[in-house]
């Protein structure tokens, strides 16, 4: 079970959270092409390595936030608030 640091509540066990899929996928407006819309809906990087992903502290504060997790090791490099840019951290640099 992962130990996830909610930016608002601190480290908590994974059962308190709900997974929210890949982060930083901006929802386009209704004027986009079909291809662009399909890409927004379905195309994901399926990263092997450091992935920015969304979590919600659903059984805690209820807030969504982002995490950088290495999908090979499950190591979480950092967590950060929604609306802030992806931190420039690579695997091996995290605290």
């Amino acid at each position: 079970m992962l130990l996830i640091a909610c930016p608002y509540c601190g480290p908590r066990a994974e059962i308190e959270f709900a997974y929210g899929g890949e982060a930083h996928i901006a929802r386009p407006g209704p004027g986009v092409t079909e291809e662009e819309w399909a890409a927004f809906l379905y195309l994901r990087d399926n990263t092997k390595g450091v992935l920015a992903e969304r979590w919600r502290h659903s059984h805690g504060c209820g807030r969504f936030f982002n995490a950088l997790r290495d999908t090979r090791t499950d190591r979480i490099l950092t967590t950060y608030e929604m609306g802030t840019p992806r931190p420039d951290i690579k695997e091996g640099e995290a605290a």
Binding site: A18, G20, R27, R54, R56, S58, G62, R63, F64, M82, G83
Partner: peptide, 13 residues
């Protein structure tokens, strides 16, 4: 409710 919170917190801040 989760979907409402999702859009409210992440798309429509």
């Amino acid at each position: 409710l989760n979907m409402m919170e999702d859009y409210l917190q992440t798309e429509w801040a």
